[in-house]
Design a protein around this nucleic acid. Structure first.
Length: 363
DNA sequence: TCTGGGGTCCTAGGACCC
DNA sequence: TCTGGGGTCCTAGGACCC
């Protein structure tokens, strides 16, 4: 017994931040352009997006700007302009929402789309037709290119765009799944990052096909229940997660890396106060209260610690929050140079909604 | 080489309760 | 005197994603 075949579309904008910048700086087309940090390649920051010309030098997102500069001294570095990309992202999402309300944004430049389908319709054919229209409208109306994937679930739709980039279109049907996954390096699978790739390699597992042949019990033993089960399912192309248009936030945070490491406690407290202020402001703007507060400290050697405290009554008051945060700061070692500090509010509760009554007995 | 900032989810141990 | 099992919450750390 299985449900109706689904068809999920994944849309992924190509080199989004860079492409948006090129719309207002047409002279930079065809050049190695890098968007990241404050635009100064000597500052502490990373690449947020690189043009395909820059990628040819081995530059990719997440790379330190200093290193990118070394790899490609002639590259043009631009500061991140979130407000601009958000605006463009809105236009992108608006196009998608014209076809269905089942649009799940995933960052500014990606989204999953699922069509509602009448019983007599073929969801795959409907999705493919829609996907083509979407790609064309992004090209015409936004003057940007996107890669679009269509597959039976989110996992495979995202994999399709990954394989078809840039400016691509790829369909993975149920009958293609085994063939597509078999020879793929495990790193291409959603949820397999650097660490998991290393551990799998150590176990002699390099391809998704090999992963699929590994017994579930084996994987659970090595990676824990959740992760092991996930690896087992994903290696077979199995993913039942729905397209969810809206997620309630679980946390709100602000953090900042200093240009130079510091041991100045007063300075650290000042910065944390500003970050706390920002988080408090956001909580109030969006109508949440939080009951757990966490500070994060990253030392010069990248060792990172967190200290948190949960209060009984959720709050959005700066005074309450700062009282907790200041107390947490006193619990950390400030004799070693610090490169980053952060503040996080979690355990969020929508303002006006009382917490669920504890011990209430239904039925 | 030298590693952002904003998130998500999971694990593991201890406290506490029934 | 010794021994349960299940559940939830809290804290700290870690992997992963864009």
């Amino acid at each position: 017994m299985h449900g109706k075949i689904r068809a999920v579309i994944h849309v992924d904008m190509d080199a989004f931040f860079v492409s948006v910048e090129l719309k207002r700086k047409k002279g930079l087309r065809g050049k190695p352009v890098i968007v990241g940090g404050d635009g100064d390649p000597q500052s502490r920051g990373v690449v947020s997006a690189a043009s395909y010309e820059a990628r040819r030098f081995g530059i990719h997102s997440g790379m330190a700007l200093r290193r990118a500069k070394r790899l490609c001294p002639g590259a043009i570095f631009l500061p991140v302009d979130y407000a601009l990309y958000e605006e463009e992202s809105e236009r992108f999402m608006d196009i998608l929402r014209e076809y269905t309300d089942l649009v799940e944004s995933f960052g500014l430049d990606e989204a999953f789309v699922e069509m509602r389908c009448a019983p007599e319709e073929d969801p795959f054919e409907k999705a493919i037709t829609t996907a083509r229209k979407i790609k064309e409208r992004i090209r015409c109306e936004l003057k940007l290119t996107a890669t679009v994937g269509v597959a039976p679930n989110k996992l495979l739709a995202k994999l399709a765009t990954e394989l078809a980039k840039p400016d691509g279109f790829m369909v993975i049907r149920e009958e293609d799944v085994e063939r597509v996954l078999r020879g793929l390096p495990v790193r291409k699978l959603w949820g397999v990052g650097e660490k998991t790739e290393k551990r799998l390699k150590f176990l002699g597992i390099q391809t998704v096909g090999e992963l699929a042949r590994t017994p579930l019990l084996h994987l659970v033993r090595y990676f824990g229940r959740a992760h092991g089960t996930m690896l087992h399912e994903y290696s077979r192309g199995v993913d039942t997660s729905p397209v969810v248009p809206f997620h309630e936030p679980n946390s709100m945070s602000r953090e900042v890396t200093f240009e130079k490491d510091t041991r100045d406690v007063y300075f650290i407290k000042e910065v944390l106060y500003e970050l706390t202020k920002d988080v408090a402001k956001r909580l109030r703007e969006e109508g949440y209260r939080a009951k757990t507060f966490t500070i994060k400290i990253r030392y010069y050697d990248f060792k990172t610690i967190t200290r948190s405290r949960t209060v009984v009554t959720p709050t959005d008051s700066l005074n309450d929050m700062w009282t907790v945060v200041a107390e947490l700061v006193d619990r950390v070692d400030t004799t070693q140079p610090i490169r980053l500090v952060g503040v996080k509010a979690s355990g969020l509760e929508k303002r006006g909604e009382k917490g669920v009554q504890k011990g209430f007995n239904y039925g």
